[in-house]
Design a protein around this nucleic acid. Structure first.
Lengths: 165, 165
DNA sequence: GCTTGACCTTAACCATGCTTGAGGTTTTAG
DNA sequence: CTAAAACCTCAAGCATGGTTAAGGTCAAGC
């Protein structure tokens, strides 16, 4: 890399208290404002979830939009979506451009479906826990918990009975 | 280990089609009937989630109760409980003895609390997704998604506004 | 008896989601 | 101008939850 002479004018893009709409964010600012570690910011960028440009000194400068992306990443993670899937969903957004409402709405509808599915699953699980274990039916052969997905082996005389106790 | 002469009488404990209540299970039988891999059975045993005895040939023999333990492990994992916590909960059960209904009920009540909490979180998340992203309020400064947990940095003039867009 | 499949142990490896460290450069503050 | 803080890259490390491989033993059936 060519070493560039220090620029005389102070670069407002790196001023931590600058509130201008046209400033970019350093990695440290992104970390602080999004509540994740600098290393996580690097990691997400490496994984393609976010993007940056470099300044003359090879330091990352982020578009402010990155904060929303990170908010979405964190949200999706709470829901249990793996990073690879999040990356895929985010990749449908325009690169380095502020996504519009429809862009986000489309993505969120994907999360919503996923979320609803997870919620349904957990509720089913809870009901089964309540009905099955709570009442002692765990010891009965037809208990869902004891035979989830009907994946019992089919051979042998005890195939449909895990443990009659 | 002392090498033991092969026993003359056929050991019914290893007969795959034996349905007697007093038989024990080999690791392969446990794997097949619980629907997990043999390596996973070994892994769980190594982590203290299940236990076995050894026969004369140093092979694992499981009490049939292990199937219920594994069912509980799988259930808890679906709920998102990490193995260490599951191990802790299982450790409250009597070792190598069939737990009674109260034992299971107590454990399941712990899972239930956890489950309910997760369900509540997911539902809150879903509602926020619907209300926040779906309607476009993601671009407003008070959006929960964009400022989760109020963890924004406090310095600078833009601290309470992630990105006014 | 002998072959074959199931089992044994130990150790290394995989994927995910990051963090930590080493060694060096850039930026900022005084 | 200089020192400190922030940043850079690359590599290794950690925790979780297992799987895979290597080299050897045991058990069941013919």
């Amino acid at each position: 890399m060519v070493k560039v002479k220090r620029q005389v004018k102070k670069n407002s893009e790196t001023n931590p208290t600058d509130c201008g709409k046209h400033t970019t964010l350093s990695v440290g600012q992104v970390a602080k404002r999004s509540g994740i570690a600098v290393s996580a910011v690097h990691f997400y960028e490496q994984k393609g979830l976010i993007q940056s440009r470099r300044n003359a000194g090879n330091q990352r400068r982020y578009h402010r939009d990155v904060l929303r992306r990170i908010a979405v990443i964190k949200t999706a993670q709470q829901v249990g979506v793996p990073l690879a899937k999040i990356a895929h969903a985010l990749s449908s957004l325009p690169d380095n451009k502020a996504p519009n409402v429809e862009d986000w709405a489309h993505m969120s509808s994907l999360w919503l479906d996923d979320l609803n599915h997870r919620i349904d699953t957990l509720i089913a699980l809870r009901d089964n826990l309540s009905n099955c274990i709570g009442c002692g039916c765990l010891s009965l052969h037809h208990c869902w918990l004891r035979n989830p997905g009907d994946t019992l082996s089919q051979q042998g005389c005890g195939a449909r009975l895990i443990d009659p106790d």
